[in-house]
């Protein structure tokens, strides 16, 4: 029954969507304090290579590798974030773009460890390793009516989904907290925020580092889901992909990044014939979005309108007019 519905190809796409959502959130979180970082592809690469190398060479458990990948990316985030505080706007974008390219060039040239542009293969697969543990406990996917590889991909999707829900929940909570309000204040007006007693240095480095950790985390997950990485995966085009998620979906709200990542991952898969023209369409989208809707598809007013609609509908179905109570 379950085995007929589940298609490994669809599960694979869903797991890409979930990884891309983490990347989308990573650029959203730096943008939420008014900083545009184009170095997230570089942080993603650091996370991916760290975790892949640790698990391949030192037989580290995958979970430890992923966490260490995120931590190392975060350390780089702090190292870049503190000096980058002197920069803002366009200058920060260029410096982080330069950082991403330097990281890629290092991956290509440090052949003794990273295998150069050939890339790393044979990275332990998240689903397969988990499957082995399940097997040891005597569990058999046949009990659910699933084939082995269906079960493997399903495991990956479930883990990623859990991670995503936790992350989204965390960042929505954070947005409503002292930290989130400080980010918003810095984005609106740095000088005013400073004079209100907000420690700009701390919060800007915090948001930059959070972005780096998330990107590294997503990179590490990517490495263990793909089981193969090469420097080309973390080049300029990846940075553009990540930027598109947030710009297209909407950079004001976390839902924008989530929507953007989902839509932009499904689009080339759903429309196979346009996948050759994918980047051309991306280019047109960027130009058109900036000209017509610079805040992205999902913004605060759209969300409010949506909530209002939902309320009206619910109120109507119960036979209670909302006007009665006003």
């Amino acid at each position: 029954m379950l085995g007929d519905i589940i298609n490994p190809y669809h599960l694979q796409i869903i797991s890409f969507i979930l990884i891309n959502i983490i990347l989308g959130i990573s650029i959203y979180i730096t943008l939420s304090s008014g900083q545009l970082s184009l170095g997230n592809a570089g942080f993603m690469g650091i996370g991916a290579y760290t975790s892949a190398l640790l698990t391949i060479n030192f037989d580290l458990p995958i979970f430890l590798g992923i966490i260490l990948g995120a931590v190392v990316a975060g350390v780089f985030g702090i190292l870049i974030g503190i000096p980058a505080l002197r920069l803002s706007g366009v200058y920060l974008a260029i410096a982080t773009l330069g950082f991403g390219e330097v990281i890629r060039v290092i991956f290509v040239n440090w052949e003794s460890i990273t295998q150069g542009s050939i890339g790393l293969s044979g990275i332990p697969h998240l689903g397969r390793e988990l499957f082995k543990t399940f097997k040891l406990t005597g569990f058999d996917p046949d009990m659910l009516g699933l084939k082995n590889n269906q079960f493997i991909y399903l495991l990956v999707v479930l883990i990623l989904l859990l991670v995503n829900i936790l992350l989204v929940w965390f960042f929505i909570r954070q947005n409503k907290s002292r930290v989130g309000r400080a980010f918003a204040a810095i984005k609106m007006d740095e000088k005013a925020a400073e004079s209100m007693g907000i420690n700009i240095t701390y919060y800007k480095v915090l948001s930059f580092t959070q972005g780096a950790i998330l990107a590294g985390f997503a990179g590490a997950l990517y490495a263990h889901v793909m089981a193969y990485i090469s420097p080309a995966d973390f080049a300029y085009h990846r940075a553009i992909d990540i930027l598109i998620f947030s710009i297209f979906g909407g950079s004001e709200l976390i839902w924008g990044a989530i929507f953007g990542a989902t839509f932009m991952t499904i689009l080339p898969e759903a429309l196979r014939f346009i996948s050759d023209y994918r980047y051309m369409i991306y280019g047109v989208i960027l130009i058109a979005m900036m000209a017509f809707r610079p805040q992205g598809i999902i913004d605060v007013s759209l969300l409010k309108w949506f909530k209002k609609k939902l309320k009206l509908k619910r109120g109507g179905s119960l036979g209670i007019g909302t006007k009665k109570y006003n």
Binding site: L36, I240, Y279, Y282, V284, I285, L286, I287, M290, P294
Partner: peptide
């Protein structure tokens, strides 16, 4: 009104990937 100073940067990035892939 209300266009961030990063908008032209992003829009020229759009032109650049369009031209490159074209």
């Amino acid at each position: 009104q209300g266009v961030s100073h990063l908008a032209p940067l992003i829009s020229t990035i759009g032109v650049s990937i369009l031209l490159e892939n074209l």
